[in-house]
Amino acid sequence: MPRSDALLSVRGLRVGFDGVDVVRGLSFDVLPGEVLALVGESGAGKSLTARALLGMAPRGATSAGRVLLHGSPVTPADWGRRIALVPQDALSALSPAHPVGDQLALAVRSVQGLSRKDARLRAREALSEVGIPAARSGSFPHEFSGGMRQRAVLAMALVNRPDVVVADEPTTALDPATQDMVLGLLRERCSATGASLVLVTHALDVVRAHADRMAVLYAGALAEYGPVDRVLARPLAPYTAGLLASLPSGPRPPKTRLPVVPGRPPAPGEPAAGCAFAPRCARATDRCRTERPEPRPLDGRTVACHHAALETT
């Protein structure tokens, strides 16, 4: 059952191509005003999930499952308006051929029945909300500095005052200081308007710095899902634990070998039965190889693993 206090609820989401599911039955909730990180490696299905929330699944993709906003199914009218995207290739969100203010005003007019004048006012307001002087609304993207362009992209996502902003690895190409600035600003804008933020990322340090809760995806399914501090301090799913242990940031002498999760993630369609992580998991048993673990509550979070347990030592 979706949580009654959830803003956005995803239930049993499947997205696939040619009958092969890449996202294999995913359920999670986004609470009002929170930052939820969707974490996973390439191919885990996190970007596809993000796109599905926005009705932007790629051509040829099939999808099933439910996406609910305030308890009602999301409709195409919500896309871009109540749910907005900050895309991976952030700068592609801006057209080089038109002044930034015009692009924002157009985005407003395409979803809200505002007059030209009101749309232009809202566009100027959206720019100043991200720290760009409204006087610059007549400038073209190339006339902005790199940092301003990044902020203009945020203004584009925020201009229609969405309930949920989905940011798909918006900062991977930036250095850490700029990354923090862009995400910090996005977070601040979301909390100022009461919007929730879904942050799609593979970087656990970004999660640590910016998210409240995290959903760890492996091979299109949930591995572990809960408060960031809890999961990072004491991961209970073997995949999460392996991932965290392999980070070079741990307390260990320099130049020692890092613990590696053996093998590689399965290709779509490859995990036939059982737990998708079983071939790489040191704790796998016969049961893991035949029966898919269902997500279950454990220690204030959700874990999809037959053998995860709180060891009492």
Partner: peptide, 30 residues
């Protein structure tokens, strides 16, 4: 992340084995 550890280990092994010098440029502080 799970592949990064393997490549970092490889670089350490190659250095031990071949005595290579590395100039390592990155903004990945860890």
């Amino acid at each position: 992340p799970s592949l990064r550890a393997g490549v970092l280990n490889l670089l350490l092994d190659l250095q031990d084995r071949l005595g290579l010098g590395y100039l390592f440029i990155s903004h990945d502080m860890a």
